[in-house]
């Protein structure tokens, strides 16, 4: 609104040229140009370059820019079993990872929000795993979940054995069908605390009088949670899903450190396949095509959110 009135003012003002080049504005533009240029070249330029490479026949060490149309994409989606499996693995990972993080994070946040004693301590404990990198998480969980053999269990399986819970023993990340869940376990351990922190912040932002009013009207604690708290947490859920979503769609370090990537392995994800096919197999064009597909996935997650935010703003 303010800027609109300004334009009206400048239109009628004889001082228009001076205002247009006012020093503040020049400085602002000068300050922003380097980063615009850098982003244009190093981000969008390279996205464009990757897109171009994905349409060529580059399948050896040195570039081969002969046009290949959409053949690389067609092959990935139609013939490449490893790629399709990696997409499926990633989809499973994303669903379980986000679901478990949201559920666990909300649970922890609601519990901590009960004015618990030593709340700060618990908050720190739950948030701590986020301080280590996915590589460390991966290596440690690989040790913990290493299944061992049938008569010589290791790690968690050994624990189960000694607690008389042998029926719980599982092949963990070696299970061809559901091994990805072992990776989810490690990822949730790391990120659930972060989700909790987001929810906790959201809970604290909800004015107490709203809940008080509901209680005065005779609502039970469960009803307060369901009808007052959760709807007001919706924006937090959306931000959390977007942040967790982009982590899970481009997961690479965790699967790599847990050594579950690779053909026909349960933790093979597009990011790992891209790395292997590009830098081990020299299929640069195919690798570029996978990179572009991953970018599109992440974009489909983020762009609608951006659009809705812009729209909300325009209405404001």
């Amino acid at each position: 609104m303010e800027s609109a009135s300004e334009t009206v003012a400048t239109r009628t003002s004889p001082a228009r040229p001076r205002r247009r080049f006012n020093p503040d504005r020049l400085i602002a533009i000068a300050m922003i140009i380097p980063s615009i240029v850098a982003i244009a070249v190093f981000v969008y330029g390279f996205i464009g370059w990757t897109g171009f490479i994905s349409l060529t026949k580059w399948a050896d060490l040195l570039p081969d820019y002969r046009w290949n149309g959409l053949e690389n994409y067609r092959r990935l989606f139609m013939d490449d079993e490893r790629f399709q499996q990696s997409l499926l693995n990633n989809a499973l990972f994303t669903v379980f990872f986000i679901g478990a993080c949201l559920g666990l994070g909300l649970l922890l946040a609601v519990v901590l929000d009960r004015k618990l004693r030593a709340e700060g301590l618990f908050r720190t404990i739950f948030l701590f795993p986020m301080a280590v990198s996915f590589i460390v998480t991966g290596v440690v969980w690989r040790w913990i979940l290493n299944p061992g053999t049938a008569n010589q269990a290791q790690g968690v399986n050994l624990l189960f054995d000694q607690m008389g819970l042998g029926f719980l023993k599982w092949d963990w990340f070696l299970d061809n069908q559901w091994g990805i869940l072992a990776v989810v376990l490690a990822a949730v351990w790391q990120m659930a605390g972060y989700t909790m922190a987001m929810f906790l912040a959201g809970l604290r932002a909800i004015p107490d009088d709203l809940r008080e009013a509901a209680r005065v009207d005779g609502a039970t604690e469960g009803q307060v949670l369901w009808h007052i708290t959760l709807p007001l947490l919706k924006p937090i859920v959306v931000s959390t899903v977007i942040i967790l979503g982009h982590i899970s769609l481009k997961i690479f370090d965790l699967t790599s450190a847990m050594k579950v990537g690779g053909a026909a392995k349960p933790g093979d994800v597009p990011g790992f396949y891209m790395y292997e096919t590009t830098f081990r197999g020299n299929y640069f064009a195919r690798g570029a095509a996978i990179a572009i597909i991953m970018l599109v996935f992440v974009a489909t997650l983020i762009i609608p959110y951006l659009i809705s935010t812009f729209r909300a703003e325009a209405e404001a």
């Binding site: 390279f46 990757t50 990179a291 970018l295 983020i302 935010t309």
Partner: peptide, 18 residues
Amino acid sequence: LLTILLVLAACGSEAATT
């Protein structure tokens, strides 16, 4: 969010930096 997107994009284009 834009920053996040850019970081993602940067990761996505690793192959192209070569």
